[in-house]
Simulated assay, not measured.
Amino acid sequence: MSDNANNAEGTERPPQRSLNFEALKLHVLSHKIEVALWATRIFTVIFTLGYFIPIFGNAHSSYYKALLSNAATSALRLHQRLGTVQFTRQFVAQLLTEDSCHYLFYSLIFIYVAPITWVLLPVFLFGVLHSASYSLTLLDSLGHNAWWGARLLISLVEFQSRNILRIISMTEIVLMPICIILVLKGKAGLLTPFIYYHFLVQRYTSRRNPYTRNMFHEIRVLLESTAHKPNMPTIVRSVLLGIVNFATKLAPPQIPVPPSPTGSQ
């Protein structure tokens, strides 16, 4: 028995791979903007959760902190893509085509409006999607086998990326009538729906993210097919087709652009 025990104790165990924190440190120092973007997106996710589950602070405060974190993300992303600000017409035109500029305006629109739960959904989902993607890069710098549980969650997020982007685009569209209702209730300024309409136009004409444009098309097809059903009452058919015609007149000219698999912000 003692010999067996000694043999068992003498058996060499496979070495445990330690986390390479030095490599992580070097990665952070050499990719400061990317890491800062990852951090602001994490803060957006945390503050959004704090709004729904106000355990560590005031829900009202967490709502606006989430919007501010999203604004910081958008500003950093714009700096990363465009560099130094230039007071030229060409720079402004390029600025307005950037998705990050769209969501910087988005945060500024709703930061002066009473809290609306739907408003946080796009920034939360963008935060989850993009922070998950960069979290995988950080985990790789620690070691390819580091935190397999986190890797599993990240893979699930990336697997659902198309559905996440579709939810974001649908939320962007739904917020338009919500803005109008808020004006009627006195919870938003008269300019809010007009400014948000311009945001929606920018999302519709986005060069890198076609999901909002595609969602508008899907809604149009759904409404038209519903309106033309044989048993559809005439008044309902007229209302549905009226909505389609009104939205079509407001839509900007469609520009064909290549699709982006992960969207952008």
Rank of each mutant, 00 (worst) to 15 (best):
V201M: 01
H228Q: 13
G143N: 05
P256W: 06
S100P: 01
A75P: 08
S161Y: 00
A72P: 10
L142K: 00
L76F: 11
V174L: 13
R208Y: 08
F216A: 03
L241F: 03
F159I: 06
E9I: 12
G189D: 05
A146I: 03
S18F: 01
H198M: 05
T73L: 05
E224S: 11
L240P: 04
P253L: 01
W118F: 04
A8N: 11
K185H: 11
L190F: 13
F216S: 01
Q160D: 12
P177K: 14
P259C: 07
T171L: 05
E218Y: 10
N7L: 05
A132H: 00
P14S: 01
Y112P: 05
A66V: 06
I116V: 15
L156F: 08
G57C: 08
L68G: 09
V239M: 06
G189A: 04
V35C: 06
F216T: 05
S18P: 00
P54C: 06
I181E: 08
D99F: 00
P258M: 11
F126W: 04
T171K: 12
L153E: 15
I164S: 00
L190P: 03
P261D: 02
N58E: 07
H130F: 11
A8C: 11
T226D: 01
S141Y: 02
I195F: 00
P253R: 09
Y204G: 06
V113W: 01
F47E: 03
P115N: 10
P259H: 11
L223E: 12
V257T: 15
T234W: 02
L184G: 03
L26I: 15
F124H: 06
V92H: 11
P258C: 04
E172G: 10
A5E: 14
T44R: 00
H198F: 02
P233E: 06
I178M: 14
M176I: 12
F105A: 07
D99N: 10
L29Q: 09
T137N: 09
Q90G: 03
G242L: 05
R207E: 09
Q16L: 15
S2Q: 15
H60W: 10
L82D: 08
V123M: 08
E22W: 07
G10L: 10
A227D: 11
D3E: 10
K185T: 14
E9Y: 12
R213Q: 06
E158D: 03
S131Q: 09
V113Q: 03
S141K: 01
Y204H: 15
H130L: 06
Q202I: 02
P258I: 00
T248N: 14
L138S: 07
V92P: 00
E22A: 12
S74V: 00
F56T: 07
R89T: 06
S30T: 13
Q265I: 09
L222M: 13
S62G: 08
H144D: 04
F194H: 12
W38S: 00
P233H: 04
N163S: 12
